[in-house]
């Protein structure tokens, strides 16, 4: 009952907490060309663990913004305009906070949960593994 597979079907979060689960889900997303959504989700988690005193943190915030928020990728497409604007302001004004991507992460997580996660659980990638 507490096998990894049982956990994967419990929730998106429990799937992502498992190394094999996260890896398999990313393979599925690659096929759908939306693996950026997952990378962004992990980047937000990693960013929250950083140290504001570290000069690296500011550069990572800018890198996340440039890679996922500012362009026309799958993440930017799924974020609310207000959320993107808010992050843009923070980066431009160098108001870096560890929770500055939280809202965006919530929006992306919601999108993953509603579509990709459900599709994953009925995909051949998942079924073959099972």
């Amino acid at each position: 009952p507490d096998s990894p597979l049982a956990r994967w079907t419990k929730s998106l979060r429990s799937l992502l907490a498992d190394q094999d689960g996260a890896h398999l889900f990313r393979t599925f997303l690659e096929r759908e060309r939306c693996e950026d959504a997952l990378d962004f989700w992990f980047a937000c988690n990693g960013f929250r663990q950083m140290d504001l005193q570290d000069a690296k943190t500011r550069r990572v915030a800018r890198a996340i913004y440039k890679r996922y928020v500012e362009g026309r990728g799958v993440v930017a497409e799924h974020l609310r305009a207000a959320t993107r604007a808010c992050i843009r302001e923070s980066v431009k004004k160098q108001r870096i906070e560890l929770r500055m991507f939280d809202q965006a992460q919530t929006e992306i997580e919601g999108g993953l949960e509603e579509s990709a996660y459900r599709a994953f659980l009925t995909s051949d990638i998942y079924l073959d593994y099972v």
């Binding site: 190394q19 980047a43 988690n45 990693g46 690296k56 800018r62």
Partner: peptide, 20 residues
């Protein structure tokens, strides 16, 4: 000095689940 891409990759990897 690390490129921003490297820093981003490092940030993503740090949050990935580790083998139990």
């Amino acid at each position: 000095i690390d490129s921003e891409d490297d820093l981003l990759q490092e940030c993503i990897s740090s949050a990935m689940p580790k083998k139990k």
